[in-house]
Design a binder for these strands. Structure first.
Lengths: 198, 198
DNA sequence: CAATTATCGTTAGTGCCCTAACTGTCTGCC
DNA sequence: GGCAGACAGTTAGGGCACTAACGATAATTG
C-alpha cells in the first residue's frame, strides 16, 4: 500500500452536492482523479503482494530491473533503455532511472548489498564513483520471479479487452502529459523555481 | 512521490520483443499496468505538491477529510459516508476509513496534534477509547485549502472530455474489481460483515 | 462473580522515502 | 601549480508506512 487513501470513495451524487458548497469542485474531474488513484493503488497492491512474498520491495525491484538492463545486452534495448551503456552502473545513474534521490539510492543499495543481490565496486578511473553490479543470486532470482510477476499483471488486466487497454493507455497518457505540464512547466524560464501560480 | 517507478517506461515494441524471452509477458497488459501506475503517480505528485506547500501530507489530509465529515453534518452524507455517525471519531475508525493500521493512525494523530490540527480527548464512557476532533485551525485551513485543491484536480483532468472521463472511470473500475478479486484470496471473501478478518 | 476473550490505543523496531549537509575527488580557470 | 566550483556518494535526521507486542479496559461466559 504505497499511498494512504480513503477506503470508500464518495459517490458521484455526493460530489455533485459538494460542488454546491465548493464552486471550484468539478465533480467528474474529482471522480476521475479519485478513481485513478484508487485503481493505481489497487493494481500496485496486487503486484506488491507478489514482491513481498519474495522479500523484495517495489524500490528494490526497480533497482534490480535497471541493473538487469546492463546484464542483458540484447534485452537492453528491448526493455526500453535507449542510450543504454552496458556494464555496471553508478548509484547516480540508478537514482536518475528510478526517479529517486541519490541518498535514497544509497539506502536501497545498502540493503540490496546486505542481502546479497548487488555488489559495490570502486570505479578504477574516477575515484568518486562506485559501480553496482548484480550478483548471480539476483539474476537467478529475477529469472524465477519475473514470470509470476508477468502472470499477475496479465491477470489483473484480463478484465479489459485489447481495445479497452488501448483506450486506457491513451487516456492515461493524456493525464500524464497534463501532469507534466503542470508539474515542471516545460517552458519554465531558467528560474529554478516556478514563481507563477499554477 | 509515493511509489518508486521507472522514469522512462519501456516502449511497446520492446515489450513485444521481451515477450519472446518471457512467454508469460502479455505486452498490452504490461503496457496498461505500467501506464496506470505512471499516471496515478503523476497525478498524485501534482496534488501532493499542493499539499506540501501547505505543510500537509496525503495521509494527514486524509485524516482531516475524514474528521471533517463529522464536523459538517449536512456535508457528511455528501462526502460519501453512509453509516455516518457524526461527532468525534476514534483512532480505530479513522484507521479503518483511511485504510491504515491503528499504529499508523497513532503516529498521524501525534503529528497532527503537535501541529494544532486535531485534539485528543478521552472518551468518558469507554476508557479505552479516545475521541479525535478537528480544531478551529484545521477547519479554517481546509476552507482555505480545498478550493485550490479542487482547481488542481480540475485542471489535471481538463485534458479529458466528459465522455472520456466516464470511459476512464469505467475502465478503472474494472481493474479495481479485478484487483479486489485477486487480493481477497482466490476463492471467496468469507466475511459478509467486516467483523473478524484475521 | 471470576476468568477468558476481545478491543483500544500505544510503543518498539524496521523499511523506504525525503532534505540538508558533509567528505572526497575531479575539472576548469587563472 | 593552485584554488574555486562541480560532482559522486554518504551520513544525519525526519516523516510515514508496516508488524508485533504490550497494558488497560470492556464484554462475554462458565
Amino acid at each position: 500500500m504505497p499511498l494512504l487513501l480513503l477506503k470508500d470513495l464518495p459517490r458521484y451524487e455526493c460530489l455533485l452536492e459538494s460542488a454546491k458548497e465548493f464552486p471550484d469542485l468539478d465533480p467528474s474531474a474529482a471522480e476521475a482523479y479519485l478513481h485513478l488513484l484508487r485503481a493505481g493503488d489497487d493494481a500496485f497492491a496486487v503486484a506488491e503482494r507478489n514482491l513481498d512474498e519474495h522479500g523484495i520491495s517495489q524500490g528494490r525491484f526497480c533497482v534490480l530491473m535497471l541493473l538487469w538492463r546492463s546484464v542483458q545486452p540484447r534485452a537492453a534495448t528491448l526493455l526500453g533503455a535507449e542510450g543504454c551503456a552496458d556494464g555496471p552502473r553508478t548509484p547516480a545513474e540508478l537514482a536518475e532511472g528510478a526517479n529517486v534521490t541519490r541518498a535514497t539510492m544509497t539506502g536501497l543499495i545498502d540493503t540490496l548489498e546486505r542481502d546479497g543481490f548487488v555488489k559495490r565496486e570502486p570505479d578504477p578511473v574516477d575515484r568518486r564513483m562506485m559501480s553496482v553490479r548484480l550478483t548471480a543470486k539476483a539474476e537467478s532470482f529475477l529469472r524465477d520471479f519475473l514470470p509470476g510477476h508477468f502472470r499477475t499483471t496479465s491477470k489483473l488486466m484480463s478484465a479489459l479487452s485489447e481495445s479497452e487497454r488501448k483506450t486506457l493507455v491513451r487516456l492515461l497518457n493524456k493525464i500524464s502529459t497534463q501532469a507534466a505540464a503542470m508539474a515542471g512547466g516545460p517552458a519554465t524560464p531558467p528560474v529554478p523555481r516556478p514563481a507563477r501560480h499554477t
